[in-house]
Write a protein that binds this DNA or RNA. Sequence first.
DNA 1: CTCCAGCTGG
DNA 2: CCAGCAGGAG
Length: 273
Amino acid sequence: MKHVTRAQIHVFQDKVFLFYKTNGRKLPWRKTTDPYMILLSEFMLQQTQVPRVILYYKKWIKRWPTIHHLATASRKEVLQMWMGLGYNKRALSLHKTVQIISQTYRGDVLLAMNHFRTLPGVGLYTSNAVQIFAANEDIVTVDTNIRRIFIHEFHLPQDTSKKELWALAKQCLPNGKSRTWHNALMDYGSLVLTAKKTGIAPCTRQSRFEGSDRQIRANILRILLVSSFSYSELSEKIDVDNTRLRKILEKLIREEIIILQNKRYQIREERSN
DNA sequence: CTCCAGCTGG
DNA sequence: CCAGCAGGAG
């Protein structure tokens, strides 16, 4: 375990806070502490850049201002409102999570975060982020920005374990200032210590999009959001061999995103459980 | 080509 | 531990 002195931590904190004071971004989800709205923003921000999330976030809180509104929305509209943000399954995970929180936790988002393993699409990062930004809890979270900052600032190897990074994050947390601290870290990471500038690669990289199953999945969903189609109709609209198309459709059914009913593929409205 | 306020199932 | 998962901007 890398040793970091209190003095080093203090210098580091001052530097980040000083930057944030004059260069911090004004983002819509920073104007609220409503746990539902924070949860919404965190779902959208998973692997998606801030600039693209802003408009979607505003659109969503206007359409579904409370957790109850979203919990009772149709899955089709949820997908339509999400379309373009990417990783469409996230939208349905968010919808399901909000329904669970509404039904099982009486709409108490913060309470539910303590049981995040029961919530689809919510991992340790998101659970802690919601508690930090909504309630200023004295806990930490480490995203790709914060990881990059720690590796750069304390000269750690790029393969530093998650456990060690989180431990270091705890040492650096200024108690009582968790919300501001994490906002400041994220701005410092995305505006100053960028991936390009530091040469620190993210821990998860992905395969190319062009010609991928992901691209085809997105096409299928776009088409099924307009109307339901039979297999033959669908295969005419999507230029891909039958074996592959069948396989992708099977997977979408397995993931409970679409359903085959009366020989027609369509967006699944309700989940089984 | 790269990256992005990650999560999930195998 | 790893591959898969959207889409757009640099």
